[in-house]
């Protein structure tokens, strides 16, 4: 790439950022923080600094101290180059843009600069909060999903430690499902928390109606959908045994990536039964809006894939071989 082209791209990016108010705002705030810190103020409210100390720091005691920071999650902040005095400053944003990896971050001695360190920690915090949170029950009510549980009885910790128990429905769950669900439908939709309830919350409202409409217009019967708490993918086998549907579709939260807790997968199996494993299933993964598979598109794709499973009466490796 020649310099002129790089400069043109950089100029365009900067113009966009200015238009979005990102560049000037961020720059000003950072300056304010640095100036305040240089003056020795770490108290964000500014109300308790005694007057004789402010006299020492040279601050006008009447001047208020306010921190009102922009969200570091905004792209303008996230992708801001951190290298001090790069050899080719125009090319640096291009390199940064070419990957979602955290490059162009610069260094403080051999360590991270403060903004990139804190952004990393912010991203890790989101994944931790997603992992240890239960799903919003309002969402389940809204979509008419009743709730059952696997054999996990000891909360999230046991869920993480005992994947075998998360693959089995509790006796109570089997009973409730047997009572409440339509038997032997073409399609059985199931929702599970998996490792991220946030992923279900982020995608279910969009993907669920698309799938229901898709199956209805294809003339397929849809079973009674429900929600499984402390859910692992293998629970599909138990569900297949109790309900005897043609195709089970399990929407489940994926293990959160750093700063990305909203990624959901759809696992699908044809007539799942005891002993089935991943080779018997298909999966549509990375379902989320930004940079992933859009949930609306994913929903449409899942409908197509289910129809293919019905046509070939197979899923997973068997389906691959059948359609070869």
């Amino acid at each position: 790439m020649d310099d002129a082209k790089i400069n043109a791209i950089v100029e365009a990016v900067i113009q966009q950022l200015i238009a979005a108010g990102a560049v000037s705002t961020t720059g000003l705030d950072v300056k304010t923080v640095q100036e305040s810190q240089r003056a020795g103020h770490t108290n964000a409210t500014g109300t308790s600094a005694s007057e004789h100390l402010s006299a020492r720091t040279g601050r006008n005691a009447a001047q208020p101290v306010n921190f009102d920071l922009p969200d570091p999650n905004d792209d303008a902040y996230r992708y801001r180059p951190g290298v001090k005095n790069p050899i080719d400053p125009a090319a640096l944003p291009e390199l940064i843009k070419s990957t979602s990896a955290r490059i162009g971050v610069g260094r403080a001695g051999p360590r991270y600069r403060t903004p990139s360190l804190l952004l990393f920690q912010a991203d890790h915090a989101i994944t931790q909060d997603a992992l240890h949170r239960d799903i919003d029950s309002k969402l389940l009510e809204e979509l008419g999903l009743f709730s059952v549980q696997t054999r996990i009885t000891g909360g999230k910790e046991q869920y993480l430690l005992r994947p075998d128990l998360g693959r089995q429905l509790s006796d109570e769950a089997k009973k409730v499902i047997a009572e409440r669900c339509v038997k032997s439908p073409n399609i059985q939709l199931v929702v599970g928390d998996g490792l991220s309830a946030a992923a279900i919350e982020a995608n279910l409202r969009q993907i669920f109606p698309v799938m229901v409409q898709g199956f209805q217009s294809a003339g397929l019967s849809i079973g009674t959908p429900f929600y499984v708490k402390y859910c692992r993918v293998g629970v599909m086998n138990d569900i297949g045994e109790v309900i005897k549907p043609d195709v089970v579709i399990l929407l489940i939260g994926e293990r959160p990536g750093l700063g990305r807790a909203e990624s959901m997968s759809a696992y699908m199996g044809y007539k799942p039964q005891a002993g089935d494993n991943d080779a018997d299933r298909d999966v549509v993964c990375n379902i989320y809006e930004k940079n992933g598979t859009n949930p609306l598109e994913a929903g449409a794709f899942i409908v197509q894939l289910a129809q293919k499973m019905l046509k070939y009466q197979a899923s997973g490796v068997k389906l691959k071989l059948a359609t070869k």
Partner: peptide, 20 residues
């Protein structure tokens, strides 16, 4: 890069860690 593997979704040691 900063220990964050954007493909495998796990965290490990970083470009900065070895020189440190």
């Amino acid at each position: 890069p900063m220990g964050d593997d954007s493909m495998l979704s796990y965290q490990t040691t970083s470009y900065h860690d070895t020189p440190t």
